[in-house]
Structures are given as C-alpha cells and as structure tokens.
Write a protein that binds this DNA or RNA. Structure first.
Lengths: 225, 225, 225, 225
DNA sequence: GATGAATGAGCGTTCATTCAT
DNA sequence: AATGAATGAACGCTCATTCAT
C-alpha cells in the first residue's frame, strides 16, 4: 500500500522535544538510532550515553533534542499513533458501509505491521515491537497526569475516537465504545507479546492472524443490538 | 468474606527470593514496606536504598532476601495471583451452575479489591494498585523467557486456566478461551488505571462497577454458540 | 620419598590464627577449601563469604579461625615454608659433602612440587601454585613490619639460613649469601610463573627442569673463590 | 644527567586508558595524585574515591580516564618501563665496548632512582617505590593472559631484550639470557624492598650500592665462557 | 563451638546533566 | 549547533564484621 511517497510527514506534539529531531541530520540519526537500540536492549537498559555512542555522537548533543529518555519514548509512541491514524484514514476513505469500515479499522489496529515505504527513516517493524513492549511504560508512570496535561495522549484518543465513531454509527446506543476499542488495541499488543515470549498464556502462534479474527469477532458480538 | 482466619498462607515460588521473607520479622517488614513505598513513589523510583531507610534497616539486609528489585516485584505479583486464585476457589466451591460460576469468577477478577482480613500483614488494596500499575513490567522485560523458565508465570496461568475451564464447560468448542480471559484481566486493569489517571480514554468513573459489567457482557456474548 | 607417614605435622606460628585450624574438622575443611578456592579464583577475588559457601559453612565460623583473609594466606605460606624446611632437612641428613648438600638444597627449593603423601589433607601442588602467584602479597603490603614483628617471616629466614650455611661452608668469605638464596627462591617462582603465563619473558617451557639447572649454575659460579 | 629537557614524552599503550591522561590538565593531576597516594597508602587501600578526593575531583571524572585501578597501575608501570628504556638507550649511545655497555645497563636497571628533571610532572623516586612494591601485582593476577594479549608487557620485554643483546654479544652461546636479566631486575627490586622493610632477609643496608655490585658480579660470572 | 541473622561501611559504576568552547 | 570535558548524585552490590542464639 503506497500513499504519498515521502511527501508528507507525521507531526508530533512539540512539547515532547526541545528541538525537532526531523529538522536536522543529527536529529534523524537520534530517532533511527533510538529505535534500533531500544528494540535491541529494551527501554530499561537504554541510556542517552549508549545511544550517543551508537550513533557516534555525544550525550550533550542528544540532550539538545530531548529532555530525557522518557520523552524520547513518548516521541516514538506519538509518532506511531499518528502514523497509525494516517494509515487508518487512508484505508477508510471512500468506504461507505460501516461494517466494512469497522473491519478495515480493526485490521489496521491489530494486524502485524509491515515496513512502510512512505517513511524511509523509520523502521516501522521495530517501532511496532517497541510500542508493544515499551509504550505502556509511558503512562504506567507517576507523572502520567503531567504528560496528559501536555496533550501527549491526544493522538491515541483521536485514533480510538475514530473507531468509536464507526461503532456508534452501527449501534448508536452502545455504552462503552472507548473501553471496547482500547481493550482491543492493548489486548492485541499483549497477545502478540505473549505469542512471542509466553506462548502458554495464549491460544495462538506468533505468525497467525487469529489475533485480528478474535478481536473482530469480539467487537461485532459486543455491539450487536 | 472470611475464609480461614490467618491459618493459611500463600506460597510463592522459592526461586524468586534468596531467603523467604515470610520466615522472619525483618522479611515481613520488607514486604510491607515495599508495598507502601512502591505504591507511593512507583517502581521506577523505588530502590533498595529507599526501602531500607523507610523500614530502618540497611540495603545489605534487604539483599539477603531478594537478588534485586525486579524479583521483589515478581514476589508481590506472584503472591497476588496466588491470593486471587485462593479467593476464586473459595467463591466457586459448591456452586454448580456454570453461568453462576462464570459470573463469580469474572467478578473476582475484575471487581475492585477490598481489604482481606485473612492476611493482616498485606495491604491488598495497595497491592492491587501496584499490580495494576507495575506488574506488566515483570514480563515487558528482556529477560522474560528466563523468568518464565523458572515458572514465575505459573500462578497466572493457573488462574487463567481455572476460568478457561468454566468457559469450556459452557461452550466446549470455543477456540480462544485463554486469549479471552487474559484480555479481560489485563483490560480490567487498564480500565481501572485509565479511570483514575486518564479519564478521557475510558467511558467510566473510578468507583463505578461498569468494568465488571462490561467484561462479563463481553465474555458471555463472545462464547455464545 | 616417604618420611614419617602422617605421624608428624607442621607447626605454624600461633599468632597467625585465632583458633588452630588443625584442631577441628571444620578447621581442616577451611584450609582445604581455601587452597582449592584461592588456586581457582585468585587471592584478590577470594573472600570469606565465598570460602564459607564453598565448604557449606558460614562466614562467622571462618572468623573463629582467622582474623582476615590476609592471615589465612600467611598461614598457608608459613605452612609451605615449614614443610619445605622439613623436606630440606630430610634430604640433607647424613650427607656430608657440601657440594652435594648444595645441590640437594637448590633442587628442593626450585624443582616442581609433587604431591606429598605425608600430609594428606594438603594439596601441595595447588599450594605451590598459590605460593608462586600470591605469597609475595603477604610482604608487599603496608603492614609488613607488623607481621615481621610477630615473627611471620621466621620460617622463610630459617630456610634461607640453612642454605646460607652450606654456602659459607664452601666459601666462608662469600659476602652476600642471603641475597643470593632469596634471589634464587623468588626467581625460580617468577620463572615458573612466566613459563606458564608469559612465555615470551623467559627462555624455558613450563615442564622443563632448566630452572633448577640455571639457578644451580648461577650459585656455583657466584660463590667460586 | 639531562637529555632532552622536557621536549619528549613517554608513549604508553593506548589500550590501558580510555582517555590519554597526558592530554588534559585533569589527566595529569590524576597521574600525579595516583603516584602520591599509592606510594602513601599502598595499592590495596588505594581507591578511585580516595584518589578523586585527594585531587579535589570526582570518581566519575577519574573513570573517564581509566577503566579501573588495575589499569591505572599498569599505566604507571608501563610508563616506568618506557622511561627506563629511554634512559638505557641514552646511557649506551656511542659506547662501543660490550663490557662497558653491560656495566651501564645493569647499573641503570638496579641503581636507586634519582629524580629526573626531564619529566617534571612525574616523581620518579615515588614511582620507583611503587614499581618495587606493587608492580608485580599487575601480572600476579588471574587476567594476566588478557593483559598480555593487549601487549601490556611489551615495554618490559623490550627492555629485557636490549640487555640480552649485550649479553649475547659477549657470549653468543649463552642459553638463558632472559632468565638471567629478569632475575636481576626482579631480584634487585626484592632486595631493595627487603633492605627497607625486612632487613634480616638480606645482607645489605637500604642506601648501600651493594645491590648493583652483587647483580653485576652475578651476571659476569654466569656468562663467562 | 558453631551458626544464622543482621548490619555499617564503602566500593565500583553509571547516570543525567551542565558548562565552556 | 554541536561537542568535549567534567561533575554531583545515586545506584547496585559486596565485604568484613558483630551479635544473639
């Protein structure tokens, strides 16, 4: 699926960074390097020192872009949610039937990620693994309310809201659309993680598409009138 | 609900600790203090140094019990899952009707926790908050396979399995019981966290019982033949 | 060479220990275990904690015998020098010719050690490796004068003196017998260490008897009138 | 003896340090301070913490230069051997007679050290005491093979080789030149240490020049055809 | 006499961050 | 704007040692 061939870019809340990493060569190297390194060693072990040395730069330089490693992870996550919403919008455009729209939406949210040629600097496959394994740490955190007040969770809410709208189109009286959608998004992440690392906790294999099937079925039955 | 009035105790996999904290006064203080402190400042900020000073002991002493703070969190989580399974078993005993059993099981897993007078040293309310906010960090972790090989996730699997069995009693052909139950357990945690910290991401208020209602409904519809 | 079949024992200066390790089963296990462990991991890495756990005892128990690990190493070294003097005496008894006596003495001091069946609890081969690698640390030490005042170096001096006496018998006017003998003892240790670990620093192979040949030749030429 | 008046410097294998201490003011203070402190309290008691506080800096800063105290000691020792080789070369230049060359070489290796005005930051007298008391610890060590593979012992070998060459000039058939020279170097160190701390083990007084006399005599007799 | 429990002290290390250039 | 140097603070951990039993 190709959309706009490198002519667009995902905007990220500018409170997350001190200097926009998209605005310079070093900034782009920081993002690329961070994705590689977090994917490799995990967010707990990840430090600006290790990042700097992996891209042949210095800690001081990284600090020009991000206040701390938490905000760098927030940046990656926000970019991911923004990118996912962008893909969702493209997949739904000109599709009228709400059931077909729901189908496409849930697939977008739960199917395994493939490399996206529109954003060459970002390795979406690695980034997806990071979002699955690490992104919950951005809100399971004592300062979550502060981040929320900066609007860091808006892209996630926007994404959820788009799918909620489809659900309410199908069943305007359904009371818990947000709970339903966020349960599916987080749940799909969990299941993919379990499938890879703790297979006994799930019923599926890593490469199966049962995750999408399962959550689509769950939603359809839940919102039946 | 009273069961056995302090005469039983929850056993925890002895690979998690170096010395059983239940075996000494200091060990009990460590557990109590850890629950208070993690609940207060969060697991990232929690260190053995801070714990030691909060219970007027020393780091060296804490290290006699736990290899590191990760294992201490694992201990708390295992105790929690063990305790929850114990409660589940008591609530289901002598109940024949599978729908009634399912009802009770889901309530046990998703309802807000109240203090349990059977285990006076443990503050289950705080521990529940910790499990909600921090326990996912025990598997979202680079060494998850090692912990799994030590059997650290067995209590969780056992708990899930008990509810799976009820589901298969109702609908023997249902294909994804584990996915369904773990989605509900994790989902309920998420919703309670959102309700408290990120209200815009959910449809409920913190003290509402909508969470249980929602997941019970979800499950029943999902497993309908 | 058999001497007295377990009926004698080497006495060690009783200021080195708090309680004589030869006086109890645990004490013997401490000595045996210490030899094994120091030979395996080196004296720097060696601690009473590791020793205690390797012999299934406790640190507190080890402290009943030795004040610290330094004194334990001194004990082993003193035992070694005592044992070597005992062997020397046996080898020289009834030998009249001073050149033959010198020959035998230097061989005793510089030849590779073989297991001695007279002292079954002590592994002399390992102990010899320890003396070569670690024993210089007992005097290359800020408190060497204190140890000296306790007489810890007397067995070494006695041993050296015995060989000096032979040299003075051959050449009563020789001025530096102590320097000569201690140079040979320490030098032979060094050469054996180099041969094993830093071969480029020496001219010999580990199992060659060139070390003895070399030092014997050196001494004979040095003391020629 | 003046050579080049501060215009040259001794190069040290760059695998010993993380950042060349000669390249900054702080680096030089670290070297100076380390020499003072090790000479004063001994290498066992010496820590980066104490060093840092003695030069009014921080541990973290010291760690930018050296990975650990072992490598700092290696640095000092390598510098010493490099410096000694440099002095040896100067003392031998334009001297033809091999016996005169041998004489000068052995004096360089065994005579007491006097302050060298060419290298003002280094206190060679203290450094010599350190080399005598501590430098054997850099090879009497479990990781000696690793250090050797990094080439840490090359300056020592080079120095020894230069004197071996003189010996082979005098007696081309002599079989153990390396053993002879390293025996003398290490032996002279020992004797100076004994003379100062354990006088009963040697035949000399601390300030006597008998050490040089003794080893020169030993060598000459040993290599006589 | 031997052991189990506990602890004070300090080490090596790393981190996040700042300052000067 | 980017970097090199330096640092304060804290962390995880282990050690030697003592006390109570």
């Amino acid at each position: 699926m190709e959309y706009l061939g490198g002519k667009i870019s995902i905007d990220v809340n500018d409170k997350v960074f001190l200097k926009d990493p998209r605005s310079s060569k070093l900034g782009n190297k920081i993002i690329e390097g961070a994705i590689d390194l977090i994917d490799e060693i995990g967010f707990e072990e990840f430090t600006f020192r290790k990042l700097a040395s992996s891209i042949n730069s210095t800690e001081a330089s990284v600090y020009r872009y991000f206040e701390n490693k938490h905000n760098l992870l927030v940046y990656l996550t926000l970019w991911y949610w923004g990118w996912l919403e962008y893909r969702l919008v493209f997949r739904l455009v000109n599709v009228e039937d709400p059931y077909e729209r729901l189908d496409r939406a849930i697939k977008t949210l739960t199917e395994p990620i493939k490399q996206d040629s529109d954003f060459t600097q970002i390795d979406e496959v690695k980034l997806n693994r990071i979002v699955i394994s690490e992104s919950s740490k951005i809100y399971l955190h004592k300062l979550v309310e502060l981040d929320n007040s900066h609007g860091f969770f808006k892209p996630y809410k926007d994404l959820v809201q788009r799918v909620c709208d489809i659900i309410l189109e199908i069943n305007p009286g359904y009371k818990y659309p947000h709970m339903l959608i966020s349960t599916c998004i987080e749940g799909a992440h969990h299941q993919r993680f379990f499938a890879e690392h703790l297979p006994r906790l799930t019923d599926i294999l890593p490469d199966e598409d049962a995750v999408t099937t399962f959550y689509l079925d769950l939603i359809k039955k839940a919102i039946q009138k």
